[in-house]
Amino acid sequence: MRWLRSLMFLFAALLAAPVHAEPEYSIKAGYILLFTRYVEWPSSAFATPTAPIVICVLGADPFGTVLDETMAGQESQQRPLSVRRVSDAEDAENCHVVFIATSPNGQPMSERTTQWLQLLAHHPVLIITEHLAALDRGAMLSFVSEFEGGQARIRFEASLPPMHRAGLTASSQMLIAARKVHRRRLPGDEEPQ
């Protein structure tokens, strides 16, 4: 089985290959821009009628400069957009959008993420994660990758109960684009009949 050994060697060689930034974050940044246009915040969430919509990356930042470049010069609901990076939930309470990343390897939701979700609950903050499981624990939107033919499409799912609790409304145009809209916690995705 010499060919097999060669193949194993190839894998080993690849382990040393450089890892590049994932272009999926260009797409996710595009989505976040759109979310700021289709989600309505209570007016109390803004100090003035022209105050910016503040988009925060909480914790690890997988975007590099992509998020800033995507938002640069853009406006949503007649408000400018501002991007910030914050390291804990208290700083994030004044944000309008909070993005919490997970590792590109599909790392499980950490205790820290769970804590953040609890701390941010009931604040008028649109919480976006990359974990569907987070939708049960207070996240409002979650990115999900759909795989087909070695390619992935980036979609999102939405959970309405936490949005209602936080006083946010998502337009139906946005919800139609969601892969799935969770209206409650389901016992399981697939049902016997």
């Binding site: 940044a29 470049e69 590109p104 599909g106 499981a133 980036i154 145009q173 684009a177």
Partner: peptide, 28 residues
């Protein structure tokens, strides 16, 4: 960096990236 100007939901959902990562395993 690719920056997507004036995105629409349809356009974003149609873009693809190469990946070998598996889908989330909801049965965890």
């Amino acid at each position: 960096n690719v920056i997507i100007r004036n995105p629409t939901f349809e356009q974003l959902a149609s873009l693809t990236v190469t990946s070998v990562t598996g889908t989330a395993r909801p049965q965890f």
